Simulated assay, not measured.
Amino acid sequence: MRSDVPGTRRLSVEDRRAQLVECALTLADRGGMSAVTVRGVAEEAKVSLGVVHYCFDDKEQLVAAMIEKVIAEQLEALIGSIPTGTLATGRDALRTWVDEALTAVWRRAAEYPDRWLLMIESMLFSLRQPIESASAGQAMVQHQTAEKYGRAYLSEIGERCQMRWDIEERTLVRAALQMLFGTVQWWLVDRDDAAARNSLTVVAGWIADSASPK
């Protein structure tokens, strides 16, 4: 199926990949992961099957790109929450900024709950696959991506607030992300905004108490 949309055939490979990922996410938003097929993505993007196969070796590679984008969208809220300019320093300032960052991620998830569900669905699918399957490692990639964003955030906010971490950074990041993700997933069940905010405040306090002034 050739595209009849003017200019679409002039997209670079990178831009075409981005377009196809967006189309795949649109399909997943409508009907979950089972709705994402190579043919469906081609139809949504109004391109031939060959275009999709040129950009992605198979559906598994396309799904991996989808999930990486979703995770990045969610966790960029962490990095984006750090204001420019000079910050107040010390534990109280750190607690305030961490609380705002965690809340930003939760608000993003609350605004686009289907995207968070897509991450969960993809992780469970990955964990159920045979170890030799290309999809089997997707759950690990998800968590490694989340850890990368978390470590970047803690390094930056700690430096800006003139605080050093008393817990090994990777251990701190993993524990903090587990609590953050658990809070979001609990919110998906009960949609209790106040309970989610209270939980995040507790998490922020624990993170701040895990640091000391430089």
Rank of each mutant, 00 (worst) to 15 (best):
L78S: 08
R197K: 14
A35I: 03
M33F: 12
D57N: 02
I157Y: 02
S81I: 01
F125T: 06
F125Y: 07
E43S: 08
V184N: 06
M66H: 00
T145K: 08
V173E: 00
V13T: 13
G85C: 07
V47R: 02
D99H: 13
T84Q: 13
L127P: 07
Y153F: 15
E121S: 15
E159W: 04
V203I: 12
T8W: 12
L25W: 08
E147M: 10
W116E: 05
I67R: 08
I207N: 05
A24M: 04
Y54F: 15
Q61M: 10
W106C: 10
G32A: 07
E156V: 13
L49E: 14
W116D: 00
G85A: 07
V41E: 06
Q178M: 11
W187S: 04
G7N: 11
A139G: 07
W206H: 10
V13C: 01
S210H: 00
R95L: 13
A45C: 03
G40Q: 03
W165S: 08
E73G: 13
Y153W: 02
A194D: 15
A28F: 01
Q142H: 12
E100S: 15
F56H: 06
V5S: 07
A64Q: 13
R9Q: 09
F56S: 06
G150Y: 03
S81A: 12
D57K: 01
S126W: 09
L94A: 02
D29K: 04
P113Q: 10
G90D: 08
L94N: 01
L102E: 00
W106R: 06
L200D: 09
L117N: 14
E111M: 12
V51E: 07
A204M: 11
S3F: 13
E121P: 08
A109L: 09
E60I: 07
R2W: 14
I120R: 14
P6L: 00
A110K: 05
S210W: 00
A18M: 03
V52T: 07
D114I: 10
M163V: 08
I82A: 00
T145P: 02
E159V: 00
V70D: 01
Q178G: 13
A195Q: 15
